[in-house]
Design a protein around this nucleic acid. Structure first.
Length: 424
RNA sequence: GGAGAGGUGGCAGAGUGGUCGAAUGCGCCGGAUUCGAAAUCCGGUUUACGGUUUUGCCGUAACGUGGGUUCGAAUCCCACCCUCUCCGCCA
């Protein structure tokens, strides 16, 4: 959520910045609604004030044993008017919320202007794609061996966009997750968390998935409707919802390894082959809660944490700064990391690191106590994949493949595979 | 799943219809006292939203959540959520 004061005082400037991300702000509607809100709220509060003072005087009169019939008759008339005003105000506030909860974050000034992903800016590349002296196989072909990676049987169980992993490949997948978690906890100072995968609507609203993107989520049936998390960002970030943190607790650096569930509405026909785009996948997530003044430095640091994963795995990648038109709803600035996939002869997204500034914090009422002012202020929240485990597995398979279809285990993973150096 | 108890400020804990945003204690922050400290004494100490002449002032709301009754609700009524204890069951 944006600061409501911005929508009142600087509507034109805000509209312009939102237009850069392809969002059309309904200015006239907001102005009209805001005008109604102001008069209705002021009126309501005046009526409440009137009722309270009169009721108090009844109490005082009764205490003195005076007759209160006249006073009571007078106040009785306020009730209906007040009720009507309160209902009207609630209606207006609901309308305001519906609009403001659907407005994306403002892009940081360092974000390049652009319409879509073609205008993202490459920051740097790391590593050199390996030269193969044999025809490369993609992960689906490589995974066919020993039934390592089986989409057919998964379809039997669950439908399209699921996979079953077996044997050495399943272990390699687990090794990747373990390695990442150990790296972030031992070397990067993130606290390991094990979090709920099912969360309520309020939590989903806190990080911005709701109310606007419900169609991308899986939900449970029944009265106590809950949602499967599309990323551990949701659970980790909301840990500080409705909290006022002491300054010394910041920055708060967290990590979790969880499955992620995405309905992927609107991506039909994209990446249908293999396990690139699944309804269920695993990810090691990084989250940082920081003071506003430190969030951009934290953003760089956290992106480096994700890059370190790929560097230790010796996987070539590049860092891309997303342009205004390609960023996610809550982000003010996002770096994507893209890993080299030999079979596609290109880089594919494997991590996304965003600074959400105070956008999620305002929705969650996540604050810290600024010692200089003594007042609670909104924190900044950041999240990043560190990294997607399924896609890391694909990258390892393809980049480490041998002519015979066997796959070398990256040295850094060998402690996690019982010393196995090659799966064949 | 069964039975019971309970949700009030940073914490503990009063308050069962009326000057109650809330006693008291603890904690915390100032100050006094002291060579310094302890003890003691004095004062202060929630948050959100709105208005405004914006280092301030004014107003409204909030006692688990949402409704209801009433001139007036922390207090009465209804529904829901959560926590704790015991029993059962289970990983």
């Amino acid at each position: 959520m944006l600061d409501p004061a911005l929508l009142r005082g600087q509507l034109d400037a805000v509209a312009e910045r939102l237009a850069a991300r392809g969002f059309a702000l309904p200015k006239a509607q907001i102005e009209a609604l805001e005008a109604r809100r102001k008069t209705t709220q002021t009126q309501t509060q005046e009526l409440q004030n009137l009722r309270n003072t009169r009721s108090k005087s009844i109490g005082m009169a009764k205490a003195k044993g005076e007759d209160t019939a006249a006073l009571m008759a007078e106040v009785a008339g306020i009730g209906d008017q007040l009720k009507a005003n309160e209902n009207e105000l609630a209606k207006i506030q609901a309308e305001v919320a519906q609009i403001t909860l659907g407005i994306p974050n403002l892009a940081d000034t360092s974000v390049p202007y652009g319409k879509d992903e073609t205008q993202n800016k490459e920051i740097h590349q790391w590593g050199t794609p390996r030269r193969f002296d044999f025809p490369v196989k993609d992960h689906v072909e490589l995974g066919a061996r020993h039934g390592w990676l089986d989409g057919e049987v998964a379809a039997k169980l669950s439908g399209a966009r699921f996979t079953v992993l077996r044997g050495d490949l399943a272990r390699l997948h687990r090794a990747l997750a373990q390695f990442m978690l150990d790296l972030h906890t031992r070397e990067h100072g993130h606290l390991e968390c094990n979090v709920p995968l099912l969360v309520n609507a309020e939590t989903m609203q806190g990080t911005g998935q709701l109310p606007k993107f419900e169609e991308d989520l899986f939900a449970t049936a029944g009265e106590a409707r809950r949602y499967l998390i599309p990323t551990a960002e949701v659970s980790l970030t909301n840990l500080v919802a409705n909290e006022i943190l002491e300054a010394e607790k910041l920055p708060m650096r967290l990590t979790a390894h969880t499955p992620c569930f995405r309905a992927e509405a609107g991506s039909h026909g994209k990446d249908t082959r293999g396990m690139i785009r699944q309804h269920q996948f695993e990810k090691v997530e990084l989250v940082t809660i920081s003071k506003p003044s430190e969030s951009y430095a934290e953003h760089e640091r956290m992106t480096r944490c994700a890059e370190t994963v790929l560097e230790k795995l010796e996987l070539p990648y590049r860092r891309v700064l997303l342009c205004t038109g390609d960023m996610g709803f809550a982000a003010a600035k996002t770096y994507d990391l893209e890993v080299w996939l030999p079979s596609q002869n290109t880089f594919r997204e494997i991590s996304s690191c965003s600074n959400c500034t105070d956008f999620q914090a305002r929705r969650m009422q996540a604050r810290w106590r600024n010692e200089e002012t003594g007042k609670p202020e909104l924190v900044h929240t950041l999240n990043g994949s560190g990294v997607a485990v399924g896609r890391a597995l694909i990258a390892v398979m393809e980049n480490y493949q041998n002519a015979d279809g066997s796959i070398a285990v990256p040295p850094v993973l060998r402690p996690y595979t019982g010393g196995v150096e090659r799966i064949a």
